[in-house]
Design a protein around this nucleic acid. Sequence first.
DNA 1: AAATTGATTGACAACGGTTTCAAAATAACT
DNA 2: AGTTATTTTGAAACCGTTGTCAATCAATTT
Lengths: 343, 343
Amino acid sequence: MVTRKDVAQKAGVSPSTVSRVINKNGYVALEVRERIEAAIAELNYIPNRAAQNLRTRSYKQIACISPSISNSFFSEMFMGIEGMAIEYGYSLSLYNITKKKHPYIKQVLEGPYDGIILLGSQELTMVEDILEITKKMPLVTYWDRIERMDIPLKAQIPHVYIDLKKVMRQSVEYLITNGHKEIVFLGHYYNEESNSNPRYKGYEMAMKEHRLPIKDYYKIFIEMYEDKLTTGYDAIKMLLDRGYYFTAVAASNDLLAAGAIRAIIESGKKVPQDVSVIGVDNIELAKIVTPTLTTMNIPKKEIGRMLVQQLMDQIQNESTMAKSIEVEVRLKERESVKNLIIS
Amino acid sequence: MVTRKDVAQKAGVSPSTVSRVINKNGYVALEVRERIEAAIAELNYIPNRAAQNLRTRSYKQIACISPSISNSFFSEMFMGIEGMAIEYGYSLSLYNITKKKHPYIKQVLEGPYDGIILLGSQELTMVEDILEITKKMPLVTYWDRIERMDIPLKAQIPHVYIDLKKVMRQSVEYLITNGHKEIVFLGHYYNEESNSNPRYKGYEMAMKEHRLPIKDYYKIFIEMYEDKLTTGYDAIKMLLDRGYYFTAVAASNDLLAAGAIRAIIESGKKVPQDVSVIGVDNIELAKIVTPTLTTMNIPKKEIGRMLVQQLMDQIQNESTMAKSIEVEVRLKERESVKNLIIS
DNA sequence: AAATTGATTGACAACGGTTTCAAAATAACT
DNA sequence: AGTTATTTTGAAACCGTTGTCAATCAATTT
């Protein structure tokens, strides 16, 4: 292995001077710098990263713990994270957590990282684990569940979030504005009762505000798993088979919405002519589906960037204050919602 | 920061002994071991990874360079890679390369990695870069382009691959077996002439073998970009608009196939009743699309695992022989192909 | 009882850098 | 010419481990 010493010898200087050239700090005579650079090139010298890490007490790496990245929601967010991290000179390790196991906490804490970004879905991760990490290493999360935690706990975990209730409410209000009255909520199931389900609350709020009754069959709660992509399909198909009437489906994510569309089309109806569908997330799929999906765009890249910024804040300034940053969501209009008023 | 020294002091032993406990090697009296373990727990001691890396000259990390991981083809492969890497006790850094830039080579070579896995699509990466890396660090690739390189070059780059020609041929033969004769090839465009286009070659071979004429409008070549998800749609739509006749579309990946389906449905025809569509890849999308897509399943997870195995081979045994491993592809039947013979 | 073996420990030399400090050389001012 | 800044360098301490080696001590064999 070629070391700094070899370079120094070849260039006829001391190792210290070579360091100065590598790190571009301190004074180095032009002539000497060139000689050293030549030696570096000639020897194909690459500084030993482990030694640098040891000496500088920093790894220039952050770990990202994420649910299955096959889910394009998270992969897009990851892209945002990566882009921003690179701007800060950091690279990223990725840990996918799946349903079965998560010994990741130990691995990550013992790993060569300066900080951790946790993307959480559902209940895959435990609060205690997070709090444990927080004590040992800078951490920031994007974690659905955090919204449902109590204030003191929330205050301990830096996070970037979107207001799910608000999002769902906007989504449903858009449908209402377009003349829809019979709107099915196709959403996530939470272990707790539905009144702690922010998505449903948003739906409920929009409906109530506009004095629209919520019939029983409007309420569909689904357990989302990575491997169950057709749950939205199944649910809406059942509704249609039983002859229930509705003019729109407000899904709490695009996957469910896509399933709904498929069920509707298969039943012989048309989207959006007969039934409108709206989603949340705006994942790639939304552009591919027929018809293309109107949805609430969650700015995943942007969230990724903010996560990194907040983490860097902690790493660089040792600021202990756990920040909470809300990201706004906007409607992305496409083809899957019909305006019942104009026509 | 808590170091091994602190632990040693607390436990009343020498640092060396603490090391023995951590690494579980050498002799340590039971009683002493317990004392040390207690001290470790109490002090919340975590071994400094940089020091370990430096000392052992290994990072226990590998870098994965991949095209946009939003593409579920690659994210699935990544999942396979990650799973296998963990079994070997390694973790993964992920670098997404995009169209614009790739200064990744330098970054990765200077990074804390024991090896590199390169997932390549199209021409994003340059052969010279790869060869440069090969000289400095264990590397293994899954890279479409490698199949089109000349033998001596190929022999220098360890890789796992699928035979694109064979795959496409199987796909088309399946259509033919199902009674299709007028089959449109909807495939990738390569810079070179089509006779070095393995996908097209496979199509051509199947058609010729069965004495089926290839009409001009059967041949569609498309430049695939991440951001152009609708190119398959556009192409087939044009064909339909102009009134060309065909009973099936053999697409060279699922994205193109999905676009084709959408175009066909929009034109008022049905899939597979009027036109059959077959894809290649078997990405998640294939299950979601309506109708679900019959496609050639590329075992992405499996490829990922083999990539890691081959890399570990290099890392551990210093075996310099660049291996070439072919992975077999199988048909995954779903709903998008109609059997014209039975009906 | 002496000698051999095995278990158990600590001292110490790396590993390959960064960074502080002081010395030496050069340039800039009185 | 003498003094004071400013560049330019190398020596040396240190980062926190691993792993070799020899020393110690108890157990076993001759």
